[in-house]
Design a protein around this nucleic acid. Structure first.
Lengths: 248, 248
DNA sequence: CGACGAATTGAACCTATTCAAAGGGTGTGG
DNA sequence: CCACACCCTTTGAATAGGTTCAATTCGTCG
């Protein structure tokens, strides 16, 4: 009776067969950039993708590895990270099912810009970059949809640059929490739970800070009634207030 | 006799007729994303572009304006900037002839992500975003070329995020100088001149610093023999050394 | 329960900012 | 053509925001 765990975040352990053939077609059909395909075309495209599984923490590829494949998250969550010589890591994003990552440019000169890591137990679908390029060539709708998603990511990256350049820590943290809650938020009685394991270290890597600073600011945000938080989880209590804080 | 000006940077004042019909075809033909077009197609595309002139300092569009057009730099240089409520500006890039900016997404929901400003007297070619989308739909080669350029920009933006997050000022400045010299560098007897007006304030806005800090670091870099610099100009003397410094 | 990793808290330190003042190149108007 | 005014740049001293290091507390899982 009752769960003794305090973490409100659900942690799925996936079995080897969840990422089955049946699931794949359904999944691919939902991808925004494959929406223009007919059922037949979709089935053909499906054959091009290969399934791969990763346990939590496993690395899918490293930054600067030769970039050969485009991946789509099927089950679980994927972390995109960057590294610096000094050992400081940056957490760019946590991807959900349906989001793509990896290489869009064919040819062997390209290298991955980030490291991709399984944030939970994960199943991903991979397609060779050249093959995907052929798909885009034959169907401009796919190319344009991918272009739109990429443009949107460029905009998001520029927004991150803006925040890193011109905002103090507290506002940067608020902005990250607003973004995560919008993307991964799950409504609860009293707040919006960010549905992923999220340590102070993770938040530090998303805001260019140290875990200690994040801890101090989180304490303040809780006092102000903006968020609830515990070990490896965060919930947004006052979205509007947090958004106001983020904008300055 | 002789020029009394000390600035080594060439400052062009363009006349109203330089951006003529004849030049346009030549220019459009050189664009990487229109390379796949035949002469006829190019002439047809050319009709879709309209010419606009701006004097130095004039604003082409503001961030958050409704995004309607895609532009290509024909003559001169264009600054892409961002703003923050606190009044801190960010200088994202200085675009050269042949580079595009503005809107890639049609529809009236989109807004410009940055402010575009004439960094010198400038002539640009503009095309309606919907019309350009039609061009991309009819020729996947164009769409893919634009996708590649956008992907490259996303990579550059993520690199900026990495530098802002994990590197101290000196290394960030070194990295910016390396990038600018690679893009706008003009070989001279003893160094590589960055061919654009570049104040301490500009460099500050590119590295998330203050002009004072830039000044102090520049003094140091000159002492170390890595750069030469004066009022509104910078030249890289030791590219390899500067690159080494940037990487850490 | 016991142990390990995460989170908190405190104090010293450091990098870069802020504010202020002085010096120098540009180009403009007399 | 020269002189002055303007803005860019340099330099200094005080300050602040965030980091670092270290010690302690707390939650979670075996």
């Amino acid at each position: 009776m009752g769960n003794r765990r305090k973490t409100p975040v659900e942690i799925d352990t996936i079995s080897a067969h969840q990422c089955s053939i049946g699931l794949r077609l359904e999944l691919l059909g939902k991808l925004p950039f494959l929406a223009s395909l007919s059922a037949d075309e979709l089935a053909a495209a499906n054959k091009r993708f290969k399934t791969r599984d990763f346990v939590e923490g496993a690395t899918i590829y490293f930054a600067d590895d030769p970039a050969t494949h485009l991946y789509v998250v099927a089950i679980g969550q994927v972390r995109l990270m960057q590294h610096s010589p000094a050992g400081k890591d940056i957490l760019l994003d946590v991807l959900q099912p349906g989001e793509f990552f990896g290489s869009l440019m064919p040819g062997d000169d390209g290298r991955y810009a980030e490291t991709a890591q399984a944030h939970t137990d994960t199943c991903i679908l991979g397609i060779n970059a050249d093959e995907f390029r052929r798909l885009m060539t034959s169907d401009p709708g796919i190319a344009l949809a991918v272009l739109d998603l990429t443009t949107e990511r460029l905009r998001a990256a520029q927004e991150t640059v803006r925040r890193l350049s011109a905002y103090p820590m507290e506002q940067r943290l608020a902005a990250v929490l607003v973004r995560l809650a919008g993307k991964l938020g799950e409504q609860r009685a009293d707040d919006l739970l960010i549905q992923t394991r999220l340590s102070r270290e993770d938040l530090a890597q998303m805001t260019a800070a140290t875990p200690e600073t994040i801890s101090r600011i989180m304490t303040q945000l809780q006092k102000d009634g903006l968020v609830n938080s515990g070990r490896q989880w965060v919930a947004v209590k006052d979205m509007a207030g947090l958004r106001r804080l983020a904008e300055g």
